[in-house]
Design a binder for these strands. Structure first.
Lengths: 276, 276
DNA sequence: CAGGATATTTGACCTGCATCAATGCACCTG
DNA sequence: CAGGTGCATTGATGCAGGTCAAATATCCTG
């Protein structure tokens, strides 16, 4: 068996050349991470060969477990920019793991005021809000063209009865969301505009960095209005606060593009005690 | 078999007189709800004969399931007023079902600002914040003498692998907390002081009413400061807003005692469209 | 590439709530 | 029951951020 395209190895895949039936040569794509050859099925939709796996799935699974885990994902779904993945009131059937793209989730009061409850990126799980009432309790809208893995919740519950490690993982994801939401409550209830925006920028760039992007530069996927809605302030205040940070040489801003020049200064604004 | 104390029936229990061993007469306490006679064990700590069961446990279980469910509760724990049930950073081992009393949960920023994230009463489950990191991520403090059922999370996970209905229930409870938190985010991000307080009072009295208390009167268990921390406003503003509602004859207030005179007016403040 | 729609920035002004301060009320304890 | 302590109320004043408005910048589409 001969390895073709050695340069591909660092991506986690290898392509072997092998004699197939009838003496023909054929290529086998081999997933190094999962230690599995890839069949048409695993190529179609498979966690076992997904490079985001560490972000949305439990770690430390063996081959068999990994292969079974592929069953939680029913299929993939593309969502165009501006389109909802689900809306408040939609029947709940599945959780979604974001493969590519960027989402916002929001709730709104009866009289139409919108509160953005979060921004989600690749590897994050959305849809947890729907479990209580079998209907979604918020809206999830793609801020750029996106693709998600559809994970029917019935599958998740079924498999997590079989795999304690998956069960624990699901619980952790939900608990993490609760803790995150309570952090936002702290932000909204106690912090001033500058502190909120500093926290927001630090959080965003940290999550992007964990996905292999720069730790200082980013292109925001959301409008000033959406940032403001998330942080409980008006879009003008968001813009002014950006400008203020910029004047102080803490960041550089040009519309949606933001570069953090002094991360320490941002941390100090967010938490004055952190630098002692 | 002869029913003694018929007046007791409406409480959900019956006491029968029966001939026991050696010809002696003995009394059997019978739980009508669970359709189980009560053994010394079930009297000690048992969900099957707990009148809060509908609040914290799944409904529609049969006898056997109910009896097994009793195993999730390891023991009970009393918490005196002002004492923490757990603190931020404590190792996470268990969820707690509140039997009696009243709690607040809070997170705080490094520089000491506190955000109350919720108030919890009988039948509600606390501790979910600890699952992500195996350490608690907030503080839970009793606002009055309280008693909780300690449910080791290992027991819960073990049993919910066996009982899909329990598994689903746990998921729903966590999802409900996520949805609740997002509602608070809406409150904090978009509402004005009067709207926040109106929403707070309506929510509180509704939950108390679901537990058999008045739908219009209540005694607040928390200080103005704690209400303010929860609602993202200063205690003076809380007090002023109470006074304003009182002047408008929407409520009657005397310190911690509150009577809602015009629930419709409160609903209208909270949501101006709700009365059309 | 014109022209319109949408997003962002900036300025001027205003208001809801915070802040500071004093007083009042309820409850506890010696 | 006097005096202390913690909590609640109320008043006076200030300011962070909201509101309104106008100018730019960017993007989309025919």
């Amino acid at each position: 068996m001969q390895v073709k395209y050695p340069a591909l190895l660092q991506s986690g895949f290898a392509i072997y050349q092998q004699a197939g039936k009838h003496g023909k040569l054929c290529l086998i794509i081999y997933n190094l991470q999962a230690r599995l050859p890839m069949t048409p099925e695993t190529i179609k939709v498979a966690c076992s060969n997904c490079n985001l796996r560490e972000l949305c799935m439990p770690v430390g699974l063996n081959r068999d477990e990994l292969q079974k885990l592929d069953d939680v994902v029913a299929n993939r779904r593309k969502v165009a920019q501006g389109e909802p993945l689900y809306r408040n009131g939609d029947p709940f059937t599945s959780l979604y793991a974001i493969r590519t793209g960027f989402f916002k989730t929001s709730v709104s009061s009866e009289d139409g005021r919108e509160q953005v409850t979060g921004f989600q990126m690749a590897g994050e799980i959305i849809g947890l809000d729907g479990i209580t009432s079998d209907r979604h309790n918020c809206n999830a809208v793609a801020l750029e063209d996106a693709e998600v893995c559809v994970m029917p919740f019935a599958n998740i519950e079924h498999l997590s009865r079989e795999f304690p490690v998956l069960q624990r993982h699901v619980h952790k994801i939900m608990s993490r969301e609760i803790v995150r939401d309570q952090g936002v409550m702290l932000l909204l209830g106690n912090m001033r505009a500058e502190e909120r925006l500093a926290a927001f920028l630090l959080n965003l760039v940290q999550r992007l960095h964990a996905r292999g992007f720069s730790r200082s530069e980013m292109v925001l996927r959301m409008t000033r209005d959406e940032i403001g809605s998330y942080l409980g302030m008006k879009l003008e205040t968001v813009s002014r606060t950006f400008s203020k940070f910029s004047e102080e040489n803490i960041i550089e801003v040009k519309q949606r593009w933001v570069k953090i020049l002094q991360p320490e200064a941002l941390k100090k604004i967010f938490n004055p005690d952190s630098c002692n």
